[in-house]
Nucleic acid binder design. Structure first.
Lengths: 140, 140
DNA sequence: ATAAATCCGACCAAAATGATAGGGATTAGG
DNA sequence: CCTAATCCCTATCATTTTGGTCGGATTTAT
């Protein structure tokens, strides 16, 4: 029941963009170094985040990435859905594109997976990048 | 963010033992057929559940498995922990044996993983096999 | 023009997953 | 005692996923 590094690195990178949020775009190289992630691998994750509309890229010299929306309008759920796909612990109980199995109707274990999924969703959709930023200021 | 089949099959098998709970032990073969799981593979999962003290085995002809405790005293959390290991989405935020990373102290994303983990734990520890059984009766 | 960046597609090694195989040990019933 | 049923154990393995790496094309500030 582990997240892949996509979700882990992705949240780190998005939080990095939040902390260093300004007029200038932030380069991959900078994020990768600060967060200790392989630059080339992070590149692939940023491509996904860009296609999902969570970041915008600026090409060319002195380019980089910036958040596509205000930190208060991007949730942890947005990021995890983009990188990890629909939320859920089993394929027959996802938010979307769930693969119904044969015994779908009578399956009691399904109800358990639904409850777990819903508790995860409630949590990740209630935390924004802004919330995380505020939290980090408190800790200083 | 998917569970392996260990957890999925394991819960199915444990629920099967609950429904067919009686004086007689239930054979692997029966569980496997009813739940549509490879018998040999299920055998490995039952070995784990047995070593975790969740089921008892009866060897020899007409042997099989029975729940080690009352269904009301076995939670979904017990089963998932046995089969999937300590609960948590990332290695640095597990219930136990967490692997602290270098930047552990300042890591803000960690707080997010903790909240998700705790919401999962709260859910899985609040559902017993008896709860599931009661639910299944209602659906009939 | 040049250097700093993103963009893109292909490839790849290691680990995890979901089994399968084969035999040994135990026990109920005839 | 014999046999069939059943759990127990270790080893092996094919496939998929993961977590990258590589090399070059494209874009743009200076």
């Amino acid at each position: 029941m582990r997240l892949s590094t996509k979700g882990r690195y992705g949240l780190k990178a998005m939080f990095d963009l939040t902390v260093n949020n300004g007029s200038e775009p932030i380069s991959l190289n900078n994020i990768a170094k600060r967060q200790d992630i392989s630059e080339h691998y992070l590149e692939q994750l940023m491509a996904i985040l860009r296609k999902s509309g969570l970041v915008q890229s600026v090409r060319g010299a002195y380019g980089g990435y910036i958040l596509a929306r205000k930190p208060s309008e991007i949730t942890v759920g947005d990021i995890l859905r983009a990188l990890e796909g629909p939320i859920g612990l089993v394929d027959c109980v996802l938010e979307k594109d769930a693969v119904e199995c044969m015994k779908y109707q009578d399956c009691i274990t399904r109800i358990v997976w639904e409850k777990i999924r819903d508790s995860i969703i409630e949590t990740i959709d209630s935390i924004t990048l802004q919330n995380m930023y505020d939290e980090s200021r408190k800790h200083k």
